[in-house]
Amino acid sequence: MSRSPAGPLVTVDGLQVEIAGSRILQGVAFDVPATGVTALMGRNGVGKTTTVRAILGVLPEGGLITGGRIAFDGDDITREAPHATVRRGIGYAPEDRGVFGSLTVAENLTLAERRGAGRPAYDLVHDLFPDLRERARQRAGTLSGGQQQMLALARTLLNDNRLIVADEPTKGLAPRVVRQVAEALRRAARAVPMLLVEQNLAVIRELAQHAVVLDNGRVVHAGSAAELLADRELTTTLLGVGRAAGTPRHGLAAEEDTPA
């Protein structure tokens, strides 16, 4: 955290992405401030994951950035190789968790250790997720969904990162696990700014200071997370949340989320 808090950490400007010929992002523009948690929100299929993957440089097969610019701390990273972008100090927990199922838990973590990113913070990781220490020799493919998500997050916490990007880390998890993951995110966010794709409004309420809402491949709202969540009309129109935010259905105690 040696940079001046004045400039944004990530700037996305006019980003256009096509996947297999169909235009997914049509000029997405927003900033990720250098402090706090920025929530990237929106209904299913509006381009949240595509935005995140474009920033990291890991668009799916047939994906192409056709316009716009992405900058990290002022440097253009639009067409940079993913490993080079990540080495700038980004920890990434993808939507599908990206855990290597044939490798053990310990091997998954070892692979995530980056040279020049400080001493791997195993103390922090094992403190947050004691399961991972107990299951170090277990193949990651045999872990439960919640444990795999913990492993995915642990990989982002292992290094000294300048930004953590987490794509729907609470999706499909049981309420108890959602609380554990949210707690880990909260502790991580104390030290590192975060770009968080999330649909669980209670998690956003607890963690996020900034909110960016996508719809149909464009940013339709950007501002304070608290103000957005307080505005019942806005959340209803932008996010398609039928009931007021924070009711049990979207609370931390929500029942198992069914993937769309």
Partner: peptide, 9 residues
Amino acid sequence: AMVSALGVD
């Protein structure tokens, strides 16, 4: 892709 997203060339 995930290997490179962990910073490995």
